[in-house]
C-alpha cells in the first residue's frame, strides 16, 4: 500500500507492575481503518490506549503520528502543549466513564459546541444548530440541550460524550468501551454512525472493547491482548473464526453469539 500510516507504534511498553500494563506492542494504523483491541480486564488494553492518545508516557518504545499538515511527529518528543493541541483538534478520546470526558458544569449543548469553538467556529446560531443535529444523531432528546449532563442518565452521558468528540470530525478517535453501558438499540445506532463516519470522512479508530460482536461489526483488524502482551492479531473475521492462540480460542468459545 502506498498510503502512509496515520500511526506507527513500535515496541511500546508501559508496565505498572510485571504483567500489568502493555509490553512490546507494535502496529500500524491507516486512515479510514478501525482497529479493535480485545482481551480480558487487566490485560493492558486501557493502558495501551492511554499511551497511544498521549495521556500516559510509555517506559519505552515510540509512537509516530502523521499530522493533518502531513508531518510525521514522535508523540512523546512533543511538548505537552502540542500534545494537548492534537487531542483537541485532530483527535477524539471517548472515555469508558462519560464523566471523564464531559464538562459536567455546562449544558449538554455547550459540551458539543465547546469542541467546535476550539476549532474556530464562533457563530452562536450555527453552534447551537450543529449541537442539536448531533444530539439527534446520537438519539438524545434535543429538548434537553440546555440541561447539564449531571441530569442525564449514564447512557445519555455516553452518547453526549461521543457527540462531543465526533462533532469536529477528528482524524483519529480513541474509544475505551464506548458502548458498554448502552441499550442495545442505541448501541446499534452508534455503531452505524461510527461506520458512516469511517467510510465518509476516512476517520481512523482505535477501539478497546470486551464485546466481540461489536469488534466484528466495526473493526477490520483485531489485536488480542493477554497479560500485557499481544497474543494474536489479524483481520477481525479471521481472528474470530479461526483463532490460533489458546487464549483467543477460549475468548471466542466463551461468547454466546459473536
Amino acid at each position: 500500500m502506498n498510503r502512509e500510516p496515520l500511526l506507527q507504534v513500535r515496541q511500546l511498553t508501559k508496565l505498572h507492575a510485571p504483567g500489568k500494563g502493555c509490553r512490546e506492542v507494535s502496529f500500524d494504523l491507516y486512515p479510514g481503518e478501525v482497529l479493535g483491541i480485545v482481551g480480558e480486564s487487566g490485560s493492558g488494553k486501557s493502558t495501551l490506549l492511554s499511551c497511544l492518545s498521549a495521556r500516559l508516557a510509555p517506559d519505552s518504545g515510540s509512537i509516530l503520528y502523521r499530522t493533518d499538515a502531513g508531518e510525521t511527529v514522535d508523540l512523546y518528543q512533543l511538548s505537552e502543549a502540542r500534545q494537548r493541541q492534537l487531542q483537541r483538534t485532530e483527535w477524539g478520546i471517548v472515555h469508558q466513564h462519560a464523566r471523564d470526558g464531559l464538562r459536567m458544569g455546562v449544558s449538554g449543548g455547550a459540551n458539543i459546541g465547546e469542541r467546535l469553538m476550539a476549532t474556530g467556529e464562533r457563530h452562536y446560531g450555527q453552534l447551537r444548530a450543529t449541537a442539536a443535529r448531533w444530539m439527534r444523531d446520537v438519539e438524545l432528546d434535543v429538548g434537553r440541550i440546555d440541561d447539564r449532563p449531571t441530569t442525564y442518565s449514564g447512557g445519555m452521558q455516553q452518547r453526549l460524550q461521543i457527540a462531543r468528540n465526533l462533532v469536529t470530525h477528528p482524524r483519529l478517535v480513541f474509544m475505551d468501551e464506548p458502548t458498554g453501558g448502552l441499550d442495545v438499540s442505541v448501541q446499534a445506532r452508534l455503531l452505524d454512525l461510527l461506520r458512516q463516519l469511517v467510510t465518509e470522512l476516512g476517520l481512523a479508530v482505535v477501539i478497546v472493547t470486551h464485546d466481540l460482536a461489536v469488534a466484528r461489526l466495526l473493526a477490520q483488524r483485531l489485536i488480542v491482548m493477554r497479560r500485557s502482551q499481544v497474543v494474536e492479531s489479524g483481520l477481525t473475521d479471521q481472528v474470530l473464526d479461526d483463532p490460533q492462540h489458546a487464549y483467543t480460542q477460549l475468548l471466542v468459545s466463551s461468547v454466546l453469539t459473536a
Partner: peptide, 19 residues
C-alpha cells in the same frame, strides 16, 4: 448475513460499492 442492526437494506447492499 452479518450486518450492523438498524441499517436500511438499500445501504447494506450499496456498501461494497461505497467502499
Amino acid at each position: 448475513l452479518r450486518v450492523i442492526p438498524r441499517v436500511p437494506t438499500l445501504e447494506v447492499v450499496a456498501e461494497p460499492l461505497r467502499l
